[in-house]
Amino acid sequence: MSKQKDCAAFAIILKYLTDQNRPFSAQDIFQNLQQEHHFGKTAAVKALEQLAQDGKIKEKVYGKQKIYFADQEQFTVVGEADLKTLDKQIGEQSEKLQNLQQSCRQMEAELKELNNSMTTQEMSVEITALKQECPLYREKLWKIKSASNHVTPEDKEQVHNERKRYIKEWRKRKRMATDLIDAVLEGYPKNKKQFYEELGIETDEDHSVAVPDM
């Protein structure tokens, strides 16, 4: 690596450690910076060791691993009063953030409602179409009211009674057929399905029908 590239790697790593202000191993530095700045692990190790030797960063050894971090003396010492001020500012900003988020949610809800609403032009078209349909419905209603062939209550009652009679007869015959088949199957050597197939018997279920309620 050229001297110019060495200087660039030194500056990049020094700035990274200062901005992050937390400990990193050489492997961490390499993995975090190599994709963007295109220098290898050897260059990262060399830069870290040189920076530590020059006193620009700090180095700590834990077993076989070395950890590097920014020199803390360069950072301003924050007192108790400063921390309280920062806490107050954080609280104020958090409150502002919550208010802004609430306002955004309200505006999003209003926007969604507006997007789902008809435009003035669409409403005009809809009103015109409804006005055209109204006379047709009025005419249809008049025809129904003026018709002389309405079903009388007596006719309706007769139809209802006949329906009940047919349903009752349906159930009766189905029960008789079921009882007869069950009696035959007691001495039949095969199962019910085979019996139905041999005789060509079709059931209500085969045609997806069922006896209706009364």
Rank of each mutant, 00 (worst) to 15 (best):
E59S: 14
Q53M: 11
H160R: 15
A44D: 01
L17W: 00
M123L: 13
N161H: 10
C134F: 15
D28P: 00
P135V: 02
E157M: 09
Y188R: 03
Y166T: 11
A9D: 04
K143C: 05
E36L: 11
K64I: 10
M123P: 01
F75N: 05
K96G: 04
K145Q: 10
F24L: 15
D206W: 07
I201M: 05
F69E: 13
E205T: 02
D82R: 07
G187Q: 07
T203H: 07
K66S: 09
V77R: 14
Q194D: 08
D182K: 10
P23D: 08
E36T: 11
K156I: 05
E139T: 05
D179T: 03
S25Q: 08
V211I: 12
A210C: 12
S25D: 06
G91T: 04
W170F: 14
S148I: 02
I127P: 00
A109S: 13
R171W: 03
D182V: 02
L97Q: 12
D204A: 02
D206P: 00
A147T: 04
H160W: 09
K193P: 00
K140I: 04
K56G: 04
Q35S: 14
Q74Y: 06
N116C: 08
V184W: 15
S146V: 00
D6E: 15
D19N: 12
I144T: 06
A147Q: 11
I57L: 06
T85M: 10
T76A: 15
L136H: 10
L17I: 02
E59G: 03
S117N: 09
I57M: 01
T178G: 03
T203K: 09
N161A: 06
E186C: 07
A70R: 02
L199S: 04
I57Q: 01
K193W: 04
L100R: 06
S2M: 11
Q34T: 10
F39I: 03
Q89V: 00
K96Y: 10
Q20V: 09
Q98I: 04
E162S: 05
L33F: 06
K88V: 02
